[in-house]
């Protein structure tokens, strides 16, 4: 994961503070696609994702005075975006967490637990991501899908680096559990209650 050099960040941040629309457009060009995709996968639909994208840019304007350059501007913006997405999904995610927390993906590694063959199509993987609890989903998307390093994921999500590693690992285990269910292909289209049903 690379980012624009800090000097460029500082210049861009100064222009953003000045309400320079060209600077906002530049920022949009740099990050909109990734932000939109993160929001899409966090929130689950295009309409909410675009609304989140707009809201992130409003928050950039509202909060740019507080940007001190301690992290890359990109990292700071992804943090705004992920906070926004997490806020919007919190109640829904908490609900899912209650339903899925009884799963023990670790058991999948124990001898004697028969794990069916796993197939990983991109479509099934998208479905599996969609039913992850929001904390796992955020870490998995940032690390495994978007390619951020664990230290960047930690900064973006405001967690320890070790927690990022743990969240991503648990997300992978849950995805594997999802993908090894015999009826994924037919049930997955119906969404989160697949795990609920099996828990």
């Amino acid at each position: 994961m690379t980012d624009v050099p800090r000097t460029a960040d500082a210049t861009l941040a100064r222009r953003l503070k000045q309400g320079d629309m060209d600077a906002y457009e530049e920022l949009y060009r740099l990050h909109a696609r990734r932000l939109y995709n993160l929001a899409w996968r966090m929130l689950g639909n295009a309409s909410d994702a675009e609304d989140a994208l707009q809201e992130v840019f409003l928050q950039v304007f509202r909060k740019i005075d507080g940007y001190r350059g301690d992290s890359a501007l990109g990292t700071w913006i992804y943090r705004l975006a992920m906070n926004l997405c997490v806020d919007r999904t919190r109640s829904r995610a908490a609900h899912d967490e209650q339903k899925t927390e009884t799963l023990d993906p670790v058991r999948m590694a124990e001898p004697g637990v028969q794990v069916p063959e796993m197939s990983v199509s991109r479509l099934d993987l998208e479905r599996a991501i969609a039913v992850l609890p929001e904390g796992y989903r955020a870490a998995f998307l940032l690390h495994d899908v978007e390619g951020f390093e664990h230290r960047e994921v930690a900064t973006i999500l405001g967690i320890a680096e070790g927690t990022s590693k743990s969240q991503v690992h648990k997300a992978r285990l849950r995805i594997r559990h999802f993908l090894t269910q015999p009826s994924v292909a037919t049930d997955a289209v119906t969404g989160p209650h697949l795990l609920e049903k099996r828990a």
């Binding site: 909109a32 696609r33 990734r34 939109y36 995709n37 899409w40 295009a46 994702a49 675009e50 994208l53 990983v120 991109r122 993987l125 998208e126 991501i129 998995f140 495994d144 899908v145 390619g147």
Partner: peptide, 10 residues
């Protein structure tokens, strides 16, 4: 596979 997931166009 996660690293190859397609991005949705904005």
């Amino acid at each position: 596979t996660a690293a190859t997931l397609d991005g949705r166009p904005v």
